[in-house]
Design a protein around this nucleic acid. Structure first.
Ligand code: NAD
Ligand code: NAD
Lengths: 232, 232
DNA sequence: ATCATATCGAGTAATAAATCTCGATTTTTG
DNA sequence: CAAAAATCGAGATTTATTACTCGATATGAT
């Protein structure tokens, strides 16, 4: 239905979860699926699932649900995951190697066609079938392979410099795994992987579960000042 | 101020970003920081930053901002990151190895004290100074090392089984990197790392930039092609 | 000492998202 | 063939989150 700019971000974030559920259901041999099925699996409200799915333009049948294959395709198409985006990865360290070894990005519309680093120890190596080039080769290779997306997995200290390199090489979208906000032009799309966001939620819940009361913490600035104006 | 369950999740997700900015500012030698500084760096509204920070109980000074050191400590304490949580990692594959090689989890209140797998090829190995045990040893070792958190990095197909193992070993919180919803008791805290959520947002923005119009998609229901009831 | 300025913090308004309600539709059952 | 059950989809309502406003206050300049 609505194909324009007005898709809630929470919806976008849930769509991959739907795909994962749907593919699992598909392996069971089912032909169709209802929002009740999906919501049961993901513990969401059925009408929310319905509203989310409606953004993709899919139409369901009362009493039956949605045709499974069409629904998966609709979501994938909506996200652009039915088309292949050429990506490069910059920073072949621990995390970079893990991403290079992940052989399912194709399902998510991404194909890593080159990797880059500055460390002579990895430059020239083959990591999970990907050649690691020196970062200086980025502009040329980016153009040659028509690279649209950059996956940034350098240390935080190198992230801004590396992102600059990407932009200079003509890359328009960056998936940033470094815990740093990038400083780039408004025409560059940046999305931070935010690994720690989920850890923060988890940690907070753990602490909250154990000791749910407000405790007299040692982090007060002016001792004794609860909600009055702080004394000098 | 409010130390109870009433912290908005968006706030929790932003707190780690603040920590990252603050630590960078700290390295510059600054003693204090204002919400204007933070909001400029992260492109957020200053009053939103202020409201987020207020949950940690920190108090700032007009015209000056917040004492940097205290602020970092306040956020870390609020998240429980000033205390060490013992964790184990289950599934020593590409991603698991990357996480084992990450030597900064201490800053996030997590210490990986053991790793587990079923594959004889990795069981017994040392990965970045972590010993890999067979999953069968999980109950004993979890108890011995007082493991509270499980980091789940198995393939999706093994995720539910492995999470079951964790729970049986007494683990109460799971950081789940597998793209599967886990089916566990309500007393178990689960947080899904959701790697693909950010990719979905990125992909959608990329496609939206290129072709913003709604197009007649081929995803309509073919009448009569359906069968299969809703119940499996 | 007084004034200008930046910033905090609380309260309020506006916006966004989740949830609820209900009529319509399709399939299965009696 | 009629009734019952399940589910869709649109719209209304509620709740959550973000953005705005403003008085108070600390600092540095005049
Ligand atoms: N490893 C993890 O599990 C993990 C977890 C959370 C976050 N992260 C984040 O991901 C990023 C990478 O982490 P890591 O553990 O893989 O680090 P790492 O040190 O193992 O790897 C970083 C790689 O980047 C390369 N590099 C440095 N500067 C570069 C430059 N200017 N251009 C190109 N390459 C450059 C280094 O040579 C190295 O190979 C970090 O920002 C880290 O905070 C990693
Ligand atoms: N590698 C990535 O970059 C990446 C990216 C996104 C998501 N993921 C997700 O992370 C998970 C791990 O990915 P990966 O690439 O590391 O996979 P992988 O196949 O490299 O590693 C999985 C590991 O889990 C082990 N394992 C299997 N069953 C087990 C069980 N029952 N108990 C304990 N260990 C078991 C395997 O032996 C293997 O070592 C997957 O669910 C994947 O979807 C990975």
């Amino acid at each position: 239905m609505a194909d324009h700019r007005s898709v809630p971000e929470p919806t976008l974030r849930r769509l991959p979860c739907y795909i994962h559920v749907l593919k699992k259901v598909e392996q069971l041999g089912r032909q169709s699926v209802s929002t009740s099925d999906i919501s049961r699996e993901l513990k969401l409200d059925p009408t929310q699932v319905r509203k989310d799915l409606s953004y993709t333009g899919i139409v369901g049948k009362p009493r039956v649900g949605y045709p499974l294959k069409d629904l998966i395709e609709a979501i994938e198409h909506f996200l652009g995951w039915d088309e292949c985006t050429h990506a490069c990865l910059v920073g072949v360290g621990h995390l970079g190697k893990a991403l290079l070894g992940y052989n399912r990005f194709g399902e998510y519309g991404v194909r890593i066609v080159a990797a880059f680093d500055v460390d002579e120890a990895v430059v020239g190596a083959r990591i999970s079938d990907h050649i690691v080039y020196h970062i200086d080769a980025l502009p040329e290779i980016a153009q040659r392979f028509n690279i649209e997306m950059g996956i940034l997995t350098t240390p935080a200290s190198a992230a801004r410099g590396a992102s600059q390199n990407m932009v200079e090489a003509g890359i328009k979208a960056i998936w940033n795994f470094a815990p740093t906000a990038l400083e780039l032009g408004a025409d560059i799309i940046v999305e931070n992987a935010q690994l720690y966001a989920t850890l923060a939620v988890l940690s907070r819940q753990m602490r909250g579960r154990v000791q749910a009361q407000p405790k007299p913490s040692p982090l007060r600035i002016t001792p004794g000042a609860e909600q009055m104006g702080p004394e000098p």
